[in-house]
């Protein structure tokens, strides 16, 4: 269920914590298997992580459902995480989110038909001086304008 490569990645996290506390690595382990599964988790994967880290499966489920970064339904290849909190809102985030929805034909919370993008409204991403902003993968895109959004969308494959 968990690939050898994923296991190696998980092991580097486990090594950071004291012996017997390998469940501290559960948050990263879930992210690693989620990434291997095209961006979402399944009960089987959560079970596999719990087994691998020798922790109760219920605890792994709790973590997987408590934190926002885990998806339990399929997502687009690129998840556009648009901040709609106060500083971004004051700088026109709501209009830009509508613009993005129209442009991609994808409503927040949905996935595009070709599976390329999904759009999610998220809370403050800690980049408020660059408002309005969104995140795709590891990358932040700041000071967004409709033109900038067009360019970013064109670059997605």
């Amino acid at each position: 269920m968990i690939s050898e490569q994923a296991k190696q990645q998980i092991d580097t996290w486990v090594a950071k914590y004291p012996a017997g506390y390998q469940s501290s690595a559960v948050m990263e382990a879930l992210k690693i298997v989620q990434a291997e599964n095209d961006g979402s988790l399944t009960s089987e994967l959560i079970q596999a992580v719990a087994d691998y880290l020798e922790m109760p499966v219920i605890s792994a489920h709790e973590v997987a459902t408590f934190y926002e970064n885990y998806n339990h339904k399929p997502v687009g290849k690129h998840v556009i995480r648009f901040c709609h909190n106060i500083s971004c809102m004051l700088n026109g985030a709501d209009d830009l989110i509508s613009y993005l929805e129209t442009k991609t034909g994808v409503k927040t919370g949905e996935v595009s038909e070709d599976g390329l993008v999904s759009v999610k409204k998220v809370e403050c991403l800690g980049a408020c001086v660059g408002a309005p902003m969104f995140q795709i993968g590891d990358q932040y895109y700041e000071n967004l304008t409709p033109q900038k959004i067009d360019e970013i969308l064109d670059g997605l494959q």
């Binding site: 909190n85 500083s87 809370e123 403050c124 800690g126 980049a127 408020c128 001086v129 660059g130």
Partner: peptide
């Protein structure tokens, strides 16, 4: 860092 409006620690 997650308090809306805060982005210094980043």
């Amino acid at each position: 860092e997650g308090e809306p409006g805060t982005c210094k620690d980043r």
